[in-house]
């Protein structure tokens, strides 16, 4: 019965490594969340429960400004990159399109180049053209790196699209415009939502490209957080981080349906 025992060992090994990885992934986050309620100025042992850092967070205008900046950039770059994504994916649907290789190349290459290079190149572009860095340049940068993702997610949705549904609609009397609005777009919608969500998260998450393209006075949350960590005043960051983790969880939970598509499109 050596076989059975060794199979069990094999499975046990996988379970063990899974559990260890879970601990690895969650312990730091968990500690961060717990310590955001710790009544201490520095990160030492537990000194009692407090919400005062959340209150400080609320009173901090810089953080509020950074938050709104982040949301504005994320919202606008999501909107633009998703619209670009929809149009491009629809264009690429034509398998005989003569610009197919060119556009696919431009879409895929940014994904296989380290982020920092996009940051550097855009920084130099804005220096070369003497454009003042700020909200506008950050927005441009975010749209640029989001386009690739939105195109790919929406495109993969369209690739699985059953063309006979269009024929069925036509057969039942629907004209091309009706078919687009009533059949095609609704079926693309999960892909569009997934793409938008991905773009939104990527935009909120980005540090390095924003770092290179934002000027003084325009901070997004990651930029603000990094600066604060470097200056060493981190107590409010704990609570801010906890809120941001909460926001992530919220996104994950409300998008239960979208999640499935995200998993399949990754």
């Amino acid at each position: 019965m050596k076989r059975i025992s060794s199979t069990k060992l094999y499975q046990g090994l996988n379970l063990t490594s899974f559990s260890l990885v879970m601990v690895f992934l969650y312990i730091p986050i968990l500690i961060l969340v717990i310590f955001s309620f710790n009544n201490a100025k520095i990160i030492t042992g537990w000194k009692g429960f407090t919400l005062k850092y959340y209150a400080q967070l609320w009173d901090n205008d810089n953080i509020k400004q950074a938050f709104w900046n982040t949301m504005l950039i994320a919202g606008l770059s999501t909107l633009f990159s998703t619209v670009f994504g929809i149009l491009t994916a629809l264009g690429l649907e034509n398998k005989k399109f003569s610009g197919r290789r060119l556009i696919s190349g431009l879409i895929y290459i940014p994904l296989v180049i380290p982020d920092i290079l996009m940051g550097v190149s855009l920084a130099l572009l804005f220096n070369f053209t003497r454009v003042n860095t700020g909200m506008f340049t950050v927005l441009i940068a975010h749209i640029t790196f989001c386009i690739s993702y939105t195109v790919i997610v929406i495109n993969s949705r369209l690739e699985g699209f059953d063309y006979s549904l269009v024929e069925a609609a036509m057969d039942l009397g629907a004209k091309p415009a009706t078919i687009f609005w009533k059949v095609k777009l609704p079926l693309m919608l999960p892909g569009i939502i997934a793409a938008a969500l991905l773009a939104f998260t990527l935009s909120i998450d980005d540090f390095i490209i924003t770092f290179f393209t934002s000027g003084r006075g325009f901070d997004t949350l990651p930029i603000y957080v990094e600066g604060t960590i470097r200056r060493g005043t981190i107590t409010t960051i704990n609570s801010l981080s906890t809120l941001m983790i909460g926001f992530t969880l919220f996104l994950v939970i409300i998008t239960k349906r979208i999640r499935k598509i995200l998993i399949s499109s990754l």
Partner: peptide
Amino acid sequence: TNLIIRIFS
């Protein structure tokens, strides 16, 4: 989850 927060943790 935000990259910078994970590093911070």
